[in-house]
Design a protein around this nucleic acid. Structure first.
Lengths: 171, 171
DNA sequence: TGCTAATTTCATTTTTTTTTGAAATAAATG
DNA sequence: CATTTATTTCAAAAAAAAATGAAATTAGCA
C-alpha cells in the first residue's frame, strides 16, 4: 500500500465532526428504516452524508464496525437507488463512494423502483377480483363492485400522486 | 385438520365471494406490509374490506386461521389507525368489527400517527447536529452547514407535504 | 355478587430478516 | 501470467419481528 493510496487517511476526525457523523448515522438509520431499508444501509448513507471525501468500501465497513459483506450489500442497494456514486481516486484501485444529496432525485428513484412496481401488480390483482364477481347482478354484487371500484381509484390516484410528489419537494 | 377447514370455519360463502376475499386479503397484506404493518394486520383488514356484515374477533381469527392473540393485537392496531370500527349487534355481547373504507381518512391518520412523530424527533436531531459544529467558521464548516441545512429543508418540506398529500387524494 | 364469555397481555416459540465471514470471483499490478 | 488486492456471493449464525396460547383481566349478565 502506497502512502498516496488514501486521500483520506483514516485519521481520527475532530470531536465535533465525529459527533456530527454519529448524529447523521442515527438520523439516516431511522429514516431508512421507515422506508423499509436495513440498518446497515442507513448507517452507510449516514456516514457518507457528512463525509468530505469519498470513502472506499473497506473504510466504510471498519468505520461503522460492520462486515465487508454488509458493506458490499448495503452499497449495492444504495447504488441501485442512485443514493451513492463512485469517484475515481488517482493511485487507488478501490472504488470510492460518496453520497448523492439531492433528495428530490433520491425520492423520485425510490418511488419509481420500490413503489411503482407494487402499484403495477396491484392493478392485476384488482382485475382478478372483478373476475371473481358472480355474473348475475344480485343486490350483493353492488356492494362488491363499489369496493372494487374504490381500490381501483386508490391505485390510480397513488400512481399519479406519488411520482408527482418528488416534483413538489421544493428543497 | 386441513388449512381449508380453518379458513372456512363458519358458513361457507359462495365461491366467488371467497375468491374475492382471498384476493382482498392478498391485496391488503401487501399494501400494509409496504407501510410496515405485520401480515396479520393486512389479513384482518382484507377480510373485513369485502365483508358485508361486521365480524366479531373470534370469527375473524378462525376465518383467517390466526390466533386470537394476533387478532386482538391486529385489531388494536387497526383501531388506533381508525381503519376499523365497531358496531353494536343486538343480542351479542361481542364487539363486531367493520372496515373503514375512506382511504383519504385512513392515510391522513396514518401520516399523523406513524410519520409525523418521526419528523418531529428528526428536528431535534438536526438541532443536535448544529451543536456539534465547531464554533469558529473554518472552510470545512461551510460544507457541514450546507448539509445540515439540506436536512432541515427536507424535514420541513416533508412536514408540510405529507399531511397535504391525503387532501390531494381525489378518490 | 358470582359466573361466564370476551378480550387483552405477555413470556415463549416460530418465522423472517439481516449480518457475518469465508470461499469464489473479478480486477489490477508487476 | 502469477500474484495480490478488492469485491461479491451465499450458506450459516445472529438478531429482530411477529405469532402463539395460556394466564390474567375485563366486562356483561343473572
Amino acid at each position: 500500500m502506497t502512502s498516496a493510496s488514501n486521500l483520506n487517511a483514516e485519521s481520527s476526525p475532530a470531536l465535533g465532526q465525529r459527533n456530527l457523523e454519529l448524529e447523521s448515522i442515527d438520523f439516516f438509520v431511522r429514516l431508512m428504516s421507515m422506508l423499509g431499508m436495513p440498518r446497515s444501509v442507513g448507517e452507510i448513507y449516514g456516514l457518507l452524508y457528512f463525509s468530505m471525501d469519498s470513502l472506499p468500501m473497506d473504510q466504510i465497513a471498519s468505520r461503522l464496525g460492520i462486515s465487508i459483506g454488509s458493506a458490499s450489500q448495503g452499497l449495492r442497494t444504495l447504488r441501485s437507488l442512485k443514493a451513492v456514486r463512485t469517484a475515481y481516486v488517482a493511485g487507488d484501485r478501490r472504488d470510492h463512494y460518496f453520497a448523492e444529496t439531492e433528495f428530490r432525485r433520491l425520492f423520485s428513484n425510490f418511488i419509481k423502483d420500490e413503489i411503482m412496481p407494487h402499484l403495477e401488480s396491484a392493478k392485476d390483482r384488482i382485475s382478478k377480483m372483478e373476475e371473481s364477481l358472480p355474473e348475475e347482478s344480485s343486490e350483493d354484487s353492488a356492494f362488491y363492485k363499489v369496493r372494487i371500484e374504490k381500490l381501483r381509484r386508490l391505485t390510480k390516484a397513488s400512481g399519479r400522486l406519488l411520482p408527482a410528489l418528488a416534483g413538489l419537494l421544493k428543497l
